[in-house]
Design a protein around this nucleic acid. Structure first.
Lengths: 138, 138
DNA sequence: AAAAATAACTTTCAAAATGAAAGCAAAAAA
DNA sequence: TTTTTTGCTTTCATTTTGAAAGTTATTTTT
């Protein structure tokens, strides 16, 4: 059965609530992270992330992000059973939000996060703009 | 009946997923917005926000944010039936995340957002640091 | 060429989260 | 003293979620 593409319902004309109406959940930004930070490109890549998203949920989140224009989906050029997901500019532009989450967690959940993440946070603290741009290969 | 305070379950040691484990939903950051941006301090203030949160949901979100140390709850000094909610530093430190959501929405949902929000977004575009600090009265 | 494995899903279903509405007690206002 | 108001809690139907199993079209392996 095809994914039921419910139109997004905006609760108000506030940019914050509207953004949350689009990707204010526990998975959407993680998929963006997987792509920017870990280079995830296939369904399987996302499935293997540490948080263990279920395939049902992954499927509908990818569909939603695609319908929002945050990612694109293309066929692999040589392997017919693989699809490739890619971030659009609209998707890459969510990275600053993610960077701020990293900074906040580095400050308030320090004991809990990985060393690699701490390193990234330190870079962000040192030079937010530069680090974000470097990560986005600009 | 007292609110059931389930301990937060972290899905991984990633700072992004951990932050989302704490406030990755459609309401938490809106309550922070209400406090920083609209000066909300009482249950009623939050209830009257444009998005129309139900009292049941408002109640458990406030309880959760308090248990996370993002807000505090105190009795009003002269009116015994009013409680005052305030952001802690930990809460104010979420404002950069919110600011980035505003910037993203300004770029991609421009047609949909309010003029006041557009003005704020323009200020942020012009001087992110300065605008954030100004807003936080630093 | 046949069998096994794999990628990308979909289906099913129980459990948890949510929203809408009504109810309630204490305090304040009329 | 009666009415409102504030800050919730309760109830309950609907929606969302997570876990697990199933499906189909390719690869891969044997």
């Amino acid at each position: 059965m095809k994914a039921k593409n419910k139109p997004v319902k905006f609760r108000s004309d506030c940019p914050i609530s509207s953004a949350l109406d689009l990707f204010g959940d526990t998975w959407s930004l993680l998929l963006v992270r997987d792509m920017v930070y870990f280079g995830a490109r296939t369904f399987k890549d996302f499935s293997e992330a540490a948080e263990g998203i279920s395939s049902a949920r992954l499927s509908d989140r990818l569909t939603k992000l695609e319908s929002l224009g945050i990612i694109t989906k293309k066929k692999h050029r040589s392997n017919k059973k693989v699809y490739l997901y890619q971030l659009t500019t609209k998707g890459y532009d969510l990275f600053p939000v993610i960077a701020d989450l990293v900074l906040w967690s580095h400050k308030y959940l320090n004991h809990h996060i990985s060393d690699a993440a701490k390193q990234f946070a330190n870079m962000l603290e040192d030079d937010r703009e530069g680090t974000i741009n470097m990560f986005l290969n600009k």
